[in-house]
Computed example of a mutant assay.
Amino acid sequence: MSRLPRLYLDWNAAAPLRPEAKSAMLAAMETAGNPSSVHAEGRAARAILETARERLAALAGCKPSEVVFTSGATEAAAMMLANPPGGLKAWGPPDLHSCAMAWRDPEISEDQARAEGRLLAFAAAEGETGAIRLEQAEAAARAGAQVFLDASQAMGKIAWRFDAAPFRAAVLSSSKFGGPKGCGALILREGVEIEPLLKGGGQESRRRSGTENLIGIAGMGAAAEAAKRDLEAGVWAQVRDRRDRWEAALKAEAPEAAIFAAQGPRLPNTSAFALPGWRSDTHMMQLDLAGVAVSSGSACSSGKVAASHVLKALGVPEALAQGAIRVSLGPTTTDAEVDRFIEIWTGLHKRRPTPQAAA
């Protein structure tokens, strides 16, 4: 008996590797040279590196010289936030991703941070609920604040550009737009100097020492080019339509469901919701056994028992927050897959015992 393929609806954790990225990585594997070597093989490796840098810059809306390749958004955030201007920790709202939260000063206000010339850390888009925060970040940068932006979830999903406002720095994660995992970048505005976390050979214009991950970077560059093409073609509007169709089915089946951040601008692919009395661990397990991959929030925190700090910051009651589920779609998610997910989820909901009133 044939078995239907699993449904992967966890694109915000990691998008499936794009075919273009895989092809570019396979080609890079055949290149023997070190990008820092001056012989022909080294120059060939350098050409791969710089092509990827140009492709990523085109997607991010920055100069190629402003791109610093890293192992991911977490390292990129640490490069900027571990040694902030004046040695003072950054300010940020309490719903930042954990890679930035680790460096945030929770004891100061935004006004105090501005007055002291501290970095202000914002997320372009919050990854658990999909809420878009760009307007606030851009306004702060235009008002003269030093703004650091976590653009990991926004990049490739919405038409955002680094040069849209005078941001000081931004971080990207390759796996969020279809590149390989464990690869990312710090976008550092021209003229901004940082103290490198990794010292040694002076790669990446002395901003991040260590031989570059040429294979991963090649894949990230190819994924960036494909992501830019998708944006220009309006692909994400179709993703939004599918997300909205799922949410309409959710509310029709379970009117009591809370859909988080649904009243403001959201990423077109993200649906975070909860039902009173249905814990996220049980909910995810049931979906996983039924062949559906979703999450309970950020991949960096979804294995934790406590409710998401993001939902707490939004004022969501603890009992409801502990039931949060995130469904995130992508450009290759089909109408048929959304229909099958609706059928699976509706069946699980109908078989679910009547919950006790939430505490």
Rank of each mutant, 00 (worst) to 15 (best):
R46F: 05
P353M: 01
N269R: 11
D105L: 02
E318C: 00
S71N: 15
A90G: 10
K22R: 11
G184W: 02
E75D: 05
F341P: 09
E107W: 10
G182A: 06
A45T: 14
E41C: 09
G347Q: 05
V305K: 15
L267G: 01
S302H: 13
R55C: 07
S280F: 05
S295I: 02
I132Q: 03
F167W: 04
A218F: 01
T333R: 02
Q356N: 15
A77D: 07
V67R: 06
V38A: 14
L59V: 09
T334G: 13
A321C: 01
S280Q: 13
A233P: 05
H349I: 10
R118I: 04
R53P: 05
S65P: 06
P166Y: 01
W236P: 08
I259S: 07
T270L: 10
F69D: 08
D335T: 08
G191A: 04
L289P: 15
H309K: 15
F273Y: 15
F148L: 02
F162Q: 05
R118H: 06
A73I: 04
A139G: 09
D339M: 01
M1F: 11
M79E: 10
S298A: 13
S2M: 12
A165I: 12
N34T: 07
E193G: 04
L250C: 05
I187R: 02
R206D: 14
A313M: 08
A44S: 12
A47N: 08
S36Y: 13
E135G: 02
A299F: 00
E75F: 00
R206S: 14
K22C: 13
A145T: 09
A123F: 03
S71L: 09
T211W: 10
Q136E: 15
P317E: 06
A290D: 11
G264I: 12
G200A: 07
L96D: 06
E225N: 07
R243S: 09
A233N: 12
A222E: 05
K350S: 12
G178K: 00
A290K: 03
L250M: 04
S209E: 09
I325D: 12
P265T: 13
S296M: 14
D95V: 07
A60N: 08
S301L: 14
A233C: 08
I187Y: 01
G216P: 05
T31G: 04
